[in-house]
């Protein structure tokens, strides 16, 4: 009796464990199938290198370069803002703030992560967009820059929580060892704490970037959604995610436009995969030294 129970539980756990792998494989193969048939009709180079995204004109043009550039602009902008702020906040919470305030701060930051992205988007649309417009004297505040700020706001909690955990799990003995050798607090933080916590911090940053690239709602509401190649960060852009979300409803199932959106999904998937892969390389490296 106990043996059968054991057997059943083991199998259930096995099925649960393998389910996630199966789902990933299924999603990937589905994207791949739809995307590939699109590539056969339109050509990979035309797709990725094409400068014009006119999916519904005649003849239609499915060049996603504007969307890729849009995503890249917004992502880089968001990282440039979120990574330094996130890591410093994590350091501040784990190393500088007294214990009582630390817990309050940390739960506030975690609360920040729980705000739905639509809400972030619409608060940003009302407050940030006009602010950006006035400060930089632009024709419109719906720009890649506004999107970057908003996404940074959404990535910061992820970066803070995970790197704070990493920083706090640095053994006190390391710090003690460095301090006992006459290092100052800042020297200890920079050379010992940050170094020992680096794998965790890199993982945090990568997860933050993942969140930024994949984010759709807020970005769609704030970046202006213009599918043209921007010349600066102060112009409206459309990201890949926003294109999929905005256009999926208007397409004919099985048509070229429909398939092209799957192809965008495939490109997105590959980009995230690449980022994860690079992160793993870094993590592996720092584990060996």
């Amino acid at each position: 009796m106990r043996k059968t129970l054991d057997f059943i539980v083991e199998k259930i756990i096995f099925i649960c464990g393998i389910a996630s792998i199966i789902f990933v494989v299924l999603i990937f193969s589905f994207l791949f199938k739809e995307g590939l048939s699109f590539f056969k009709d339109f050509g990979v180079l035309n797709f990725i290198g094409g400068r014009f995204w006119y999916p519904s004109s005649d003849p239609a043009s499915f060049g996603i370069l504007p969307l890729i550039v849009g995503s890249v602009f917004v992502t880089i902008g968001a990282c440039a803002i979120a990574v330094p702020i996130g890591i410093m906040t994590a350091l501040f919470i784990s190393e500088i703030v007294p214990k009582g305030i630390r817990d309050i701060l940390k739960s506030l930051v975690e609360l920040m992560a729980a705000i739905p992205s639509v809400v972030v988007g619409f608060v940003g649309m009302i407050t940030l967009v006009s602010l950006v417009k006035n400060i930089f004297n632009l024709p419109t505040g719906l720009t890649a820059f506004s999107g970057s700020i908003m996404l940074a706001f959404m990535a910061v909690p992820t970066i803070v929580t995970i790197s704070e955990d990493a920083i706090r799990s640095v053994p006190w003995q390391y710090k003690q060892g460095a301090l006992a050798l006459g290092a100052t607090k800042w020297q200890t933080i920079r050379r010992i704490v940050l170094k020992a916590a680096m794998p965790g911090i890199i993982a945090a940053v990568m997860l933050g970037i993942g969140r930024v690239i994949g984010e759709t709602m807020a970005v769609m509401m704030i970046t202006g959604n213009a599918a043209h190649i921007p010349h600066s960060i102060f112009e409206p852009v459309r990201t890949m995610t926003a294109a999929i979300a905005a256009e999926m409803g208007e397409t004919v199932r099985g048509g070229m436009h429909y398939k092209s959106l799957f192809a965008i999904g495939l490109v997105l998937f590959l980009i995230t995969f690449l980022i994860n892969f690079i992160a793993d390389l870094f993590l592996g490296k720092s584990k060996n030294t």
Partner: peptide, 14 residues
């Protein structure tokens, strides 16, 4: 005043 602790804790480096 240098200190040597009970547990030898090398810093995580070479």
């Amino acid at each position: 005043v240098g200190t040597l602790f009970a547990m030898p804790i090398p810093l995580p480096m070479s």
